[in-house]
Computed example of a mutant assay.
Amino acid sequence: MDWKMFQALLSGVNKYSTAFGRIWLSVVFVFRVLVYVVAAERVWGDEQKDFDCNTKQPGCPNTCYDHFFPISHIRLWALQLIFVTCPSFMVVMHVAYRDDRERKHRAKYGEDAKLYNNTGKKHGGLWWTYLLSLFFKTGIEVVFLYLLHMIYDSFYLPKLVKCDIKPCPNQVDCYIGHPTEKKVFTYFMVGASAFCIVLNVCEIIYLIAKRIARIVRKIKSRDRLVTLHQRYADDDRGRYQSVPMKRLDLKPGYKPNDDMRASAPNLTAS
């Protein structure tokens, strides 16, 4: 994938997103991707080389490093950014599918024929796709925050760790390279991820509330139309009932029965 195709995908995500979605996209690609590429990778660098233990026992530093850092922060964040941006492309692909259906429909029935009023408007299946993408993004963020906390026992990076795993001869002290910088970037990335979770939750609430409000408006409009129709029907019925039946020309020799006289006292035969 080249940069132009990637830029087209990002512009598509931004085009079909709500205000919360645009803020989320800015946070992800400005405060997370750029920080990750420009600064975080350089701070971590060759982590194992900077991991120094006060022993020369062969294999001890490697074993201790693998114990305390089973997966690197930088690689875990790379996976997180990849997985968290994939659900947004579901919306772009769904809109592309709608555009293709619209194109085939117009080619078959003419240019004036329309299958969708607006292929990018979040109605029907596209609304559900967009909502599911938000749930996926929120779940991915939560899962990776939990993994980061579970693997390292916290988001805090100590300057010194004590290791007594074989083949270390005894308990040795190991020092982490650039611990303060790594701690700052860890807190920053965790805070940005938490902020993205808040934005996703706000967008989910916004979409559901907007959908409920639209349904309520439709119900009220339908009830108003039913009420007006009933009122007009009652007015017409009352207008017809208010017309007195004074005289009805019947065929000669026809005599109205008792039921007809009871319902229309003024009914007479000519």
Rank of each mutant, 00 (worst) to 15 (best):
M1G: 06
D2S: 10
D2F: 09
W3F: 13
F6W: 12
S11L: 11
N14E: 04
N14I: 02
S17F: 02
R22N: 10
W24D: 07
L25T: 12
S26D: 14
S26P: 08
V28E: 07
V28Q: 08
F29C: 00
F31R: 14
V33N: 04
Y36F: 13
V38C: 15
R42W: 01
V43N: 08
Q48M: 14
F51D: 03
D52S: 09
N54T: 01
T55I: 02
G59T: 01
C60A: 02
P61N: 10
T63W: 00
C64H: 06
P70W: 07
P70E: 05
S72T: 07
R75S: 15
L79T: 07
L81K: 06
L81P: 00
T85S: 15
T85H: 13
C86E: 13
C86N: 06
F89E: 05
V92N: 01
V95I: 01
A96K: 10
D99E: 12
D99Q: 14
D99V: 01
R101D: 14
E102H: 02
R106Y: 03
A107I: 02
G110E: 01
Y116W: 06
N118V: 04
G120M: 08
K122W: 07
G124Q: 05
G124P: 05
L126N: 12
L131F: 12
L131C: 08
S133Y: 03
L134E: 06
F135D: 10
V143Q: 03
F144M: 14
Y146C: 12
M150G: 10
D153I: 09
D153R: 15
D153Q: 15
L157N: 01
P158L: 01
V161P: 00
C163I: 04
C163N: 12
C163Y: 08
D164G: 15
I165T: 15
C168Q: 00
N170Y: 10
N170C: 02
V172I: 08
D173Q: 03
D173N: 11
C174T: 01
Y175Q: 08
T180F: 11
E181I: 03
K182A: 03
K183W: 14
K183H: 15
F185H: 04
F185G: 08
G191F: 10
S193N: 14
A194M: 09
A194G: 05
F195Y: 13
C196E: 10
C202S: 13
E203Y: 04
S221G: 14
S221P: 01
R222E: 10
L228I: 09
H229L: 05
Q230L: 03
A233Y: 09
D234A: 15
Q241S: 13
S242W: 05
M245I: 15
L248H: 02
G253Q: 06
G253A: 08
Y254C: 11
K255H: 12
N257L: 00
D259C: 00
M260N: 11
R261T: 06
A264W: 10
P265L: 02
P265A: 11
L267Q: 13
L267I: 03
